[in-house]
């Protein structure tokens, strides 16, 4: 029957198309994931053995030595026999610095943004729209333009090479966070809030007891995004830090790479340190992946 034939032809063409589409998606996923696997494979290899079988899909001369070197717990003799350089990377210290830098900044800026967003979304006061417009104008200034003057400012305050100097410029104000939270708060129902006001609760109480709990989800999302961007930040810590005491891991990794020899660097050690630097993000990704996908989709539609 002609109808059946047509339908079959159509279905086969479709399946070929679908198959090709799935092959494409599979290729994209492999390209995305492969470098992560390669980090792991190299990090578990013996750096001296790497050149003997550079294309081996499995670790070459399996050892945890590279991780020991990256964490600074390998003896010098052991490090040298496995092809490590003399240079050491105090990963535990950098990890601590990264945690302090990223979490303090995140907590401060998200809290300050929530306070401001509440004032803009729910309180009525003279000049509200003008102040909001002025603050939003900050979005027009690219972060990169502020780097040099902010560096000079932090230097004049004598705060270079301190956590305060790293955190302060970003700790109080983020136009994007304020906008994002205000947008969400505008959509909250006013009824609970009005009931509380009639019961005699002041705006401060309303904010902490009603608005903050109701805004928990977007606050968590923003915290996550801020934490990730701060953890990954490179240029600002590069400018304001100059020694190990406050240097975050991302930056230390880049400095380590530049100080390691250009010919035959300790790739296994570098990849082990890279994995340690990326690990917190990978864990966040496993726990909050769905939330991240949804929040990025949301910011796109807004």
């Amino acid at each position: 029957m002609p109808v059946t034939t047509a339908r079959t032809v159509r279905r086969t063409r479709w399946s070929v198309g679908r198959l090709a589409a799935w092959v494409y998606i599979a290729a994209i996923i492999v390209l995305t994931i492969f470098p992560f696997y390669w980090i792991l494979r190299t990090a578990l290899s013996n750096n001296h053995a790497l050149p003997t079988d550079p294309s081996s899909p499995l670790p070459v001369g399996f050892t945890l030595g590279a991780f020991k070197r990256a964490l600074g717990i390998a003896s010098p003799a052991e490090a040298v026999t496995q092809g490590g350089s003399g240079a050491s990377l105090d990963t535990a210290l950098y990890l601590r610095n990264s945690v302090i830098y990223a979490s303090l900044l995140t907590v401060c800026v998200v809290f300050c943004s929530a306070l401001a967003a509440y004032a803009f979304a729910r309180l009525r006061w003279k000049g509200r729209n003008v102040v909001f417009a002025v603050l939003l104008s900050a979005l027009m200034v690219p972060g990169i333009f502020l780097l040099l003057p902010n560096f000079v400012l932090v230097k004049n305050l004598g705060l270079t090479n301190t956590f305060a100097g790293m955190i302060l410029p970003g700790a109080f104000f983020s136009a994007f966070n304020i906008f994002f939270l205000r947008q969400f708060m505008l959509g909250l129902s006013t009824e609970v809030e009005e009931a509380a006001l009639i019961d005699g609760a002041g705006p401060v109480r309303v904010f902490f007891r009603i608005i903050l709990p109701m805004t928990a989800a977007p606050i968590a999302t923003l915290s996550l995004l801020t934490f990730i961007t701060t953890w990954n930040d490179y240029l600002w810590p590069l400018l304001v830090t100059n020694d190990d005491s406050v240097r975050p891991l991302t930056l230390a990794l880049a400095v380590f790479r530049q100080s390691s020899p250009q010919t035959a660097p300790d790739w296994a050690g570098l990849m082990a340190a890279t994995l340690i630097a990326a690990l917190p993000m990978l864990l966040l990704f496993i726990v909050f992946g769905r939330r991240l996908v949804n929040s990025i989709s949301f910011t796109g539609i807004k």
Binding site: I25, I28, I29, T32, I33, P35, F36, W38, I39, T42, I228, W231, N232, D233, Y234, T250, L251, L253, A254, R257, W267, L270, M271, T274, A277, A278, M281, L282, L284, F285, G289, R290, L292, V293, I296
Partner: peptide, 22 residues
């Protein structure tokens, strides 16, 4: 799947640059 392809966006540029340099 969307999460998987998002993965490289979450790691720092330094990590991406290092693994590709290798």
């Amino acid at each position: 799947i969307r999460g998987l392809i998002l993965l490289p966006f979450l790691i720092s540029g330094v990590v991406a640059a290092l693994v590709w340099a290798w």
